[in-house]
Each structure stands twice: as C-alpha cells, then as structure tokens.
Amino acid sequence: MDFLINFVIITLFISPIITLIHESGHAFFLKIFGAKVSEFTIGNGDIFWSKNNFFIKKAFFFGGRVGSKNLKILSKNQKTFFYLGGVFFNFLSALVLHILTGYEFLVFRNYVDSFIFVSYLTIVINLIPLNTIVGATDGKQLVELYRN
C-alpha cells in the first residue's frame, strides 16, 4: 500500500513540479535572449486550464512544452542554452535540495528525496537523443541542431 501511495504522490504532485521547473529553464533562456515565450505548457492532452499563454493539460503529470514563434532569431549557441535550460534548472534545483538535505542516492526517507531522484532521472531522460510520443527530447533537438 505504501508503494501505491508514494507512486500517486510522486506522479500527481512531484512530477508536475519538476516539469514546471524544467520548462521554466527553457523559458528563462528564451527571455534573456530576447525571444518571446508563445506557449508554456504543463502536461499533454486536452487543455484543463489556461491563462494567456500558460496551459495546464489534463495529463498534467506527463511532460510539458515551451514554445516560441521567433526561435529562429536565436544563434546556434543561444539555442543550445535554450535546449539545455530545462536540464540546467532541474540539476540546480536537485543539487540545492541535495546539499540542504544530505540526500543519499537511492535512499528515500521522504518526498524531498523522491523529488531529488526524479529530478536527476528527468535530466538523464531528457539528454538521451530520441523521439517520444510527445516530441523530441532536448538531447535529440541538440543533436539535430548541430547535425544541420
């Protein structure tokens, strides 16, 4: 029963927060390079709630997206920072919590430890260059950027 409760909490609460942090990293680099964020989405599927260009979709625990209509104005180096922005923000948030809590890898004492672990897992998954059912990972987009 504990496994089921932990799974639900991690899936419905921790994962969307990690996604929000990840997508904020992408949006941060768009903003500092002068590109406009045209879409900031948490989740996938039909829209559950929206305000301006911020969307929460019904499957809010599964992925996200930051889009810009003027991504073409960015240089290759700026696009690299944009694509790695989510991973950087995930790493920074996990590292800060890691230092503050004395996290021991694969030792789950509380939900903060789960947050740290899932953040590190998110980093690894996003750096693997592959296409998913919701689009290309950050790693795949980087490979395509430098392949062209």
Rank of each mutant, 00 (worst) to 15 (best):
G34C: 04
A94N: 02
R65H: 14
R65M: 12
T11C: 10
F55K: 11
L4S: 07
L97G: 02
E144K: 13
T11H: 06
I133T: 11
I47Q: 08
L106H: 12
F117L: 07
L121C: 07
I99P: 07
P129N: 05
G102M: 06
N6W: 10
G67V: 00
F7E: 11
F88N: 01
L106D: 14
F60P: 00
G63T: 02
I14C: 02
F105Q: 08
N131C: 04
E39F: 11
L20V: 06
P16T: 12
N126A: 04
I32Q: 09
T11I: 05
S15E: 09
N110A: 08
A27E: 09
I56N: 01
V37W: 10
E39Q: 13
L12E: 04
K57V: 04
A27K: 11
I128C: 06
N148I: 09
T80C: 11
I123S: 00
F61A: 02
V37I: 15
L71N: 09
H98Q: 12
T132S: 07
K79V: 05
S75T: 15
E144S: 14
F88T: 11
V124T: 06
L145G: 12
T101W: 06
F40C: 07
I9E: 03
F91L: 15
R109C: 08
V112L: 14
K140I: 01
M1C: 12
N52R: 15
G139W: 06
A94C: 08
N110E: 06
A94V: 05
K57C: 04
G34V: 04
E39V: 07
K72N: 14
E104K: 15
N53W: 10
E23I: 06
T11M: 14
I99Q: 09
N90A: 04
V124M: 08
F13D: 03
F61V: 01
D2K: 15
R109Y: 02
I123D: 01
L4F: 12
G67W: 03
S119D: 11
D113N: 01
F54M: 15
F108L: 12
V118K: 01
F62R: 03
G85C: 03
G45K: 03
N126P: 09
P16E: 11
K31I: 14
I125K: 03
F89L: 12
L145T: 05
K72Y: 14
G25C: 05
S15I: 15
I47D: 11
A27G: 12
W49E: 08
A136F: 07
S24M: 15
F55N: 08
V37F: 13
A136W: 03
F28Q: 03
L92W: 01
K76D: 07
W49M: 15
N53D: 13
I42Q: 06
N53T: 12
